[in-house]
Simulated scan of single mutants.
Amino acid sequence: MSKDIKVALVTGGNRGIGYELVKQLALNSFKVILASRDPEKGHESTQRLKDSNLDVSFLVMDVNNQESIHQAAITVNDQYGRLDVLINNAGVYLDESENLVTMDTSILEKTMATNFFGVYHVIRSFIPLMEKQGYGRIINVSSEYGAMSELSYPGVGAYKISKFALNGLTRLVAAEIKGDITINAVDPGWVSTDMGGSSAPRIPKQAAESILWLATIGPEGPNGGFFRDGKRIDW
C-alpha cells in the first residue's frame, strides 16, 4: 500500500455521527474502516458508501468484547499494516432521569463498559499500530456532559461519569504517548441522531466537521485537549 494513503477506523460507524465521519474521511481520500458490532447494519452502511465510490471496508468489532477488539486489531494489521486515525465514536446513552445512587446499577455498569472501558481497550489494542510508524491521531467523541462543571447538577449520572472518565483517559494517554501521536476529546454538540433525538439543533455533517480537523493536524497540533467546534473548552 502506498505510504501516501492514510487508514482511518471509526467505531460505531454504521449510523449517526459515526456514519458521517466515515463518509467525510473517505471523501478526503482516506481508506476507511467502518467498525460496528452489528454485521448486518455494518455491511448495509458500508455498501451504501461503496455505491458512492468511496473506499470503505467493514470490520465487525464489539467494543464491549475484548477478544473482538483484539481480533479486529490483528485484522487491520494483516490487511493494512498501519492505522493513522482512530475515532472512538461508539457510545451508549442509557440514562433516564433517575439519580446515580438510586438507579439500577446495571445502567451505570453497561454505560461504563461501552463509553469508558470500550474506548480504553480499543486504544490499547490499536496504539501499537501507530507506534510502529511513529504517527497517529486518536479522537475520542466525548460530551459537554463530561465536563467537571456538569457534575454539580443531578441527572444523566451514568452518562456524565462515563464521559468524565473518558476525558480523564484522554489526558492520561496524552501524557504517556511518544512520537507524533496525539489524542484529543471532542464534544460534537447536541446532534440529531438516534441517540440525540429529532429535536437536536445540529445535523451529523456539522458534528463530523467539528471533529475531523483533529484527524489531519500536524505535529505542532494539540494533544490531550478537549474541543468544541475547533475551540478548546474547559474540562
Rank of each mutant, 00 (worst) to 15 (best):
I217S: 11
N53Q: 13
I183C: 00
F164T: 08
L86D: 07
G179T: 07
K205N: 02
L9V: 04
K132R: 10
E40K: 14
Q206Y: 07
V156P: 00
V63H: 06
V32Y: 11
A158D: 04
Y120D: 14
W235A: 12
P39L: 09
R124H: 05
P154G: 04
R48I: 13
S149A: 14
Q206S: 03
A208M: 11
I17E: 09
G18P: 06
V56A: 05
H121G: 10
R48D: 05
N99Q: 13
N88T: 10
W190Q: 05
L21E: 09
R48Q: 13
L172W: 10
L34E: 05
N89V: 09
G18D: 11
K41N: 14
L25D: 03
K6F: 00
A90Y: 07
I69G: 06
I138A: 04
N77R: 10
V141E: 05
R15T: 03
G197W: 01
N89I: 10
I233R: 13
F58I: 07
Y19V: 11
I203S: 04
D51L: 08
A207D: 02
T111H: 15
E40I: 14
N184Q: 09
V173F: 01
D234T: 12
S162V: 11
T46E: 02
Q24V: 02
G230T: 03
K231T: 13
S125W: 04
V10R: 04
V60S: 12
P204R: 00
N140F: 01
K231I: 08
M130G: 03
D187I: 02
V63C: 09
A35Q: 07
R124K: 11
W213E: 15
V76A: 08
N28I: 00
G218M: 04
T114L: 12
I123N: 02
L166C: 01
